[in-house]
Structure formats: structure tokens, C-alpha cells
Design a protein around this nucleic acid. Structure first.
Length: 584
RNA sequence: GCGCCCGUAGCUCAGCCGGAUAGAGCAACGGCCUUCUAAGCCGUGGGUCGUAGGUUCAAGUCCUACCGGGCGCGCCA
């Protein structure tokens, strides 16, 4: 409908150009907005205000000329000039209600569009290090990423969801040694656990598996493990140096092959757990991309940068000249010990992403990575790829509250609240919904009590309840053995004459726009707010007017209206990974 | 110190790439269940949009400076 108004305005502009009111080369951007106030009609344009200078006329005068030049259209009942020079459009009743027919006919397809034109777009999200279970901080990235991906798909993009598995780094070797130490404890050794080791309960579970698989074959006495190591942090030493030495000792004692088995056992156990967790959270990926698999491409990527002259040697290390692209300082890609950095892997990974042919790449990162954006974009640009094809969205942390009590979390100590615990406590639906009710870059307070509450305080239940209400009303209709509308046409809808009904229809007409906008701006919270409002209007309507009235024609019309509302709620919740229950 | 994000009702937040009188929910107060689920609805009060300038027909929205809060500034990943 909006497009139609814009078309009308467009032809008015051409007409005014012909009559000389506008210069022939004038091509204004025509914006049509939904009127905020019903008194202002259905749509409004500021065209006259924007163009008054060019036309050399007062805005209201120009508005009059524009209206005179508008072709007539059956859907438009009236136009008016308002305020400083807005042109307001009023639609006739039938055009309002038409949307109900569209929704019912299109069903689950209603709201989908092709604006993405099948462009290939990759969304990389979560990508948490496989060193432990996902915690509530990852949950927000998961919920946000999944909703963004689904939204993009809904508006016609070819979406590829990917999880980058950091399975190559030092952290993973620390994980392996943590498992091994717990294994030694299970074998009866007693030793003090390193300050920098992973202390979670899950490590012990993995150690039990290790014991089951390998018996005592990996057992070494404490003395041989700890002899001649530098001091750990509690003894005044450096925890990093200590843990690295411990890793080396472990490799030496058990041998590289066995170390690799411990490593893989830990990796697979944790990754399996993460997959299961995400799957239960309704978050699925097309691909789990291993950092190890890209290692062979790292030197290749660095070679390209070198050939382009962006690398140099200093103090034994190799540096990337990221300052050429606006970074604060140059970055090391190969350390003086010859090993490439994590950043180097990331350069290769991003090169690989674009080599795979994605038109656009979206990275969803935790807020703590924001210092990393410039250098990755710099690398992309240095490799000759348009950096605007890479969009990076940061997700701020969620702070958990239980009522007014703030819950703390810390990965290393193992005392964090896991995503699984959250899901078990508040449920998948509430968790998915709550995480995306705020803009991603907005800090968020996540109140467990509110998410669990079964009342109107809780927006998830509020929206789901609107859906369930329609379902139970339909069940009653069936028990009355009354006819349910099989098809909807303008005659069916004609009895809908109430203001509330018109409002609901107008609100539903906005749904496709809301989707398009939420997708384009990567902001699922726009959809949550829309659904909250739609559900609210429906509750108001439902409370004030009976749907299952005796008059069969009015009943049929109101049932059609309710069906349409239910459909949009179901469609919208689906995109957020939230279920739409038939009864509650 | 530098960079990014944020500052809107007592609280949590919207505010549609500048538009008409700034909106919800919660909390507070007052009403509504023999009628399709009260997990709901109706009503009342509540604001110098952090501060000061600037841009223009029009600024919560854009620009500049400052104030306040968060995060990040490794040859870690």
C-alpha cells in the first residue's frame, strides 16, 4: 500500500515537472510513512516540505498543487493538507480489511519477501571457544544470531549459518592438560590444580571418560609431573608461564600421540555438548568451521599480504601494516618463535569466507571483541576485498538477575550460569525471546524471575496467550458445529465496521514492513515490539467484543480477523525461535 | 590517554535512516470474571529526552564540546 502511495506521488511529481512547477531534473526521494496519529489518516508524506525550496513555493501551497496532480485511486478515500505542509492520505474501509484476506490466504508465507534477491549471506555467530559449556553470555549471541539469520532468510537472502570452532589454539592445550590432571587425580594422585587451568565439573567428567578409554596408560606419578616447574601464581609465579610449562611436561610424559587423543577427547566432548545445547535452544548451523582446517591457508594468506607489501619484519616478528587502514598500531601475524597468531588465522578464515562466494558476511561477536574490528576489516581491505561486505555486530553482555539479586559468572572458576541452566529454569521460549527484546548493542538486564513469571508482566506469555486464545476460540467454534470460513473475500469482511477492527487490520498490514526493516537493520527487537503491540491490541479487542456471535456473517468476519492475527503471531514467533502454543 | 557503545517517566526500554501533542511495560492508585482462557481488559497520575552550543521550515533523532556509565586497547585466543 505504501508503495502504491509512493507511485501516486511519483506521477504527481512528473506531472509537476511537465507543468514547470519543478525543474525537469528534480528527482526527490519520496518517503511515505505510516501516520502516527489516526487523526492524520493512514499515510503521510513530507514531499511538499522537502520540495518547497526547489519549487519556490510555500509548503502548503505546493502541497495543494501536488494533490491536484495526484492520479485518482480507488483505495484512497481522501487526502488533506495538514500542519506545516504534510499531505495525509486516508484509505477507504475495504482497502484496510483487504489485508485480512491476504494473511489468511498466504498463511505461513505471509510477510516473506524477496528483497534479498537470493544474495548469499553468511552469518557467523556464537563461535565460543570449545573449552567449556556455553554460558548465558553466549546465549544472547546465539539467540540474536539465529533470529537475524532467520529474518534475513525470510526476506529472501540465501543464508549460511556458521560456527567458527577455535580448536587450534593454546587454550585448547590448556584444556587438554586440565583433563589430564583430573585424570591423574582419579588415578589417586594428589596435586594442586593450576591457577590457570579449567576447573569446571565437566572437566572431571571428561577425565572419567579418559580413564575408561585408557585405563592407567597415561598415568604418571605427581613427582614426575611437577618436578622442576616454575612457580604457579599462588607461589608468587606467573600463571601463564606455569601452565605453558605444564603443557610441555604433559606432552613429554604421555607423548604427542596420546596428547592429541586427550586433546580430541576434550574437544569432541565439549563440542558435542555445545551442539546439543544449541540445538535444544532452537539454534542450528549449516557449518561448524574448524580453525585447524584453515591452518594450511594461513601462510598463503600472509603471502598475499606480503606480496602487496603490507608485511614487515621487526624484532624478530612479522607485522601487518594495519595502520595503513586506520588501525591504531600494526599487528603481529607471526611471532618471534615462528608461530602465527590467532589474528593470522582469522585473516585466512575471512579470506576463505569471501573465497566461498558470499556476497555479504556478518560476524556476531561479544562486546569484548570490539577492539578487533578495525584490524580484521583492515586485513580484508588489504586483501583487496571491499570491507563494507563484512559487517560486524557486537552483542553486549547480559547481566543476570534473580529479582534484585545480581548473579555473577566466571568461566575459569567454573561457577558461571550455563545456558543450559538458564534454559532449564526459564524455558527455551522465554530465553530466546528475552535475549532479543533489546538492541544488541544495548546492555541488558535479564531477570530470571520475570522470564519465568506466567503473567502479563512477561511479554512472551502475553503474546503466546493471544495465539492460544484464538486457538481455543476456534475449538469452541468447532464444538458449536458452526461453519468456519474456508475462504475469505471482501464480502466476508464487510461486517467489520468497528474502529478496533480497522486498527487491527492496519497493524497487520505493517507486518511485512516490520520484517523487512528488522532484517535490513539486523534488529530482531523490532519484531518483538511489534508482536507485543499486536497481541495487546488483540487482547483489547477480544475483551471488548465477542467473536462467536449469533449473526453468522459477523461471526465469520470476526473469525477471519482472529485467524489473521493468530497467523501473524505464529509467523513472527517462529522467526524468533519461539513456539506458538495452541493452549496454555 | 585513545577508540567503540550507551544516557528518554521512579524502574526496564521503544521511538520507524529529521517530521505533527515524545510512547509501551513494570511499579503506584481505582475499577472489570454466571458471557469465546482474568496467563486478560479498562481508567488515573508520572518527562527541562545527560548538559551547552550549532545545522533547518522542523532535532529525542544530525554536527561539535563537555558531563556520567560500560567495554576494549597483548608477539593471548
Amino acid at each position: 500500500m505504501k508503495e502504491k502511495i509512493a507511485e501516486l506521488l511519483n506521477s504527481a511529481v512528473s506531472h509537476l515537472k511537465e507543468t514547470g512547477a519543478f525543474p525537469a531534473d528534480y528527482n526527490p526521494e519520496i518517503t511515505v510513512e505510516n501516520a502516527r496519529d489516526k487523526a492524520h489518516g493512514d499515510f503521510a508524506t513530507n514531499l511538499a516540505l522537502k520540495s518547497s525550496k526547489v519549487a519556490g513555493m510555500k509548503p502548503r501551497e505546493l502541497a495543494e498543487r501536488i494533490i491536484e496532480s495526484l492520479p485518482s485511486d480507488p483505495a484512497v478515500r481522501d487526502t488533506e493538507i495538514a500542519g506545516p505542509g504534510f499531505i495525509n492520505f486516508f484509505l477507504n474501509e475495504a482497502s484496510h480489511l483487504e489485508i485480512i484476506r491476504e494473511v489468511v490466504e498466504q498463511g505461513t508465507d505471509f510477510g516473506l519477501s524477496r528483497q534479498g534477491q537470493g544474495q548469499r549471506i553468511q552469518v557467523e555467530f556464537v563461535s565460543a571457544n570449545p573449552t567449556g559449556p556455553l554460558h548465558v553470555g553466549h546465549g544472547r549471541g546465539a539467540a540474536y544470531g539465529a533470529s537475524v539469520a532467520d529474518l534475513l532468510e525470510a526476506v529472501g537472502y540465501d543464508v549460511h549459518r556458521e560456527y567458527y570452532v577455535n580448536d587450534a589454539g593454546r587454550q585448547m592445550t590448556i584444556l587438554a592438560v586440565s583433563v589430564w590432571l583430573r585424570y591423574l587425580e582419579l588415578q589417586g594422585e594428589s596435586l594442586s590444580f593450576p591457577a590457570n587451568g579449567y576447573r569446571g565439573e565437566y572437566i572431571i567428567d571428561i577425565a572419567r571418560q579418559l580413564q575408561k578409554d585408557h585405563g592407567d596408560k597415561l598415568h604418571h606419578p605427581t613427582a614426575s609431573v611437577l618436578s622442576d616447574l616454575p612457580p604457579d601464581e599462588p607461589d608468587g609465579g606467573d600463571k601463564e608461564t606455569y601452565i605453558d610449562a605444564l603443557v610441555e611436561r604433559c606432552r613429554k610424559l604421555v607423548g604427542e600421540a596420546a596428547f592429541a587423543r586427550i586433546f580430541d577427547l576434550g574437544l569432541n566432548a565439549i563440542l558435542g555438548d555445545i551442539r546439543q545445547d544449541l540445538s535444544a535452544f532452537n539454534v542450528d548451523f549449516q557449518q561448524w568451521f574448524s580453525e585447524r582446517s584453515i591452518q594450511t591457508n594461513v601462510s598463503e594468506a600472509l603471502k598475499i599480504l606480503d606480496e602487496k607489501g603490507y608485511l614487515y619484519e621487526q624484532e624478530g616478528a612479522t607485522w601487518f601494516r594495519s595502520t595503513d587502514f586506520g588501525d591504531d598500531k600494526d599487528r603481529v601475524v607471526r611471532r618471534d618463535n615462528g608461530e602465527t597468531t590467532y589474528f593470522a588465522s582469522d585473516i585466512a578464515y575471512h579470506l576463505n569466507k569471501f573465497d566461498r562466494g558470499f556476497d555479504r558476511v556478518i560476524n556476531i561477536w561479544g562486546a569484548d571483541h570490539h577492539g578487533y574490528i578495525t584490524r580484521v576489516k583492515a586485513a580484508i581491505e588489504a586483501l583487496g576485498i571491499d570491507p563494507t561486505r563484512l559487517e560486524i555486530r557486537l552483542v553486549q553482555f547480559a547481566i543476570l538477575y534473580r529479582g534484585s539479586e545480581r548473579l555473577s559468572m566466571s568461566t575459569r572458576s567454573g561457577s558461571f550460569v550455563t545456558l543450559r541452566e538458564l534454559r532449564e529454569e526459564v524455558g527455551k521460549d522465554a530465553a530466546r525471546f528475552f535475549y532479543v527484546t533489546r538492541k544488541a548493542e544495548q546492555h541488558m538486564d535479564f531477570d530470571l524471575e520475570l522470564a519465568k513469571s506466567e503473567s502479563k508482566d512477561n511479554p512472551v506469555y502475553y503474546i503466546q496467550y493471544a495465539h492460544a486464545r484464538v486457538c481455543s476460540m476456534l475449538a469452541k467454534l468447532r464444538s458449536m458445529e458452526a461453519s468456519q470460513p474456508t475462504s475469505v473475500n471482501s464480502d466476508t469482511l464487510a461486517p467489520l465496521t468497528l474502529e478496533d477492527e480497522k486498527d487491527l487490520a492496519a497493524m497487520m498490514a505493517r507486518y511485512p514492513e516490520v520484517l523487512a526493516r528488522a532484517a535490513e537493520q539486523l534488529e530482531p527487537h523490532q519484531l518483538t515490539h511489534y508482536l507485543r503491540e499486536l497481541a495487546g491490541r488483540f487482547h483489547t479487542y477480544y475483551n471488548a467484543h465477542k467473536v462467536l456471535v449469533d449473526d453468522p456473517e459477523l461471526r465469520e468476519a470476526r473469525v477471519a480477523l482472529s485467524l489473521a492475527v493468530r497467523q501473524i503471531i505464529a509467523n513472527g514467533l517462529g522467526l524468533l525461535g519461539v513456539s506458538a502454543p495452541e493452549s496454555m
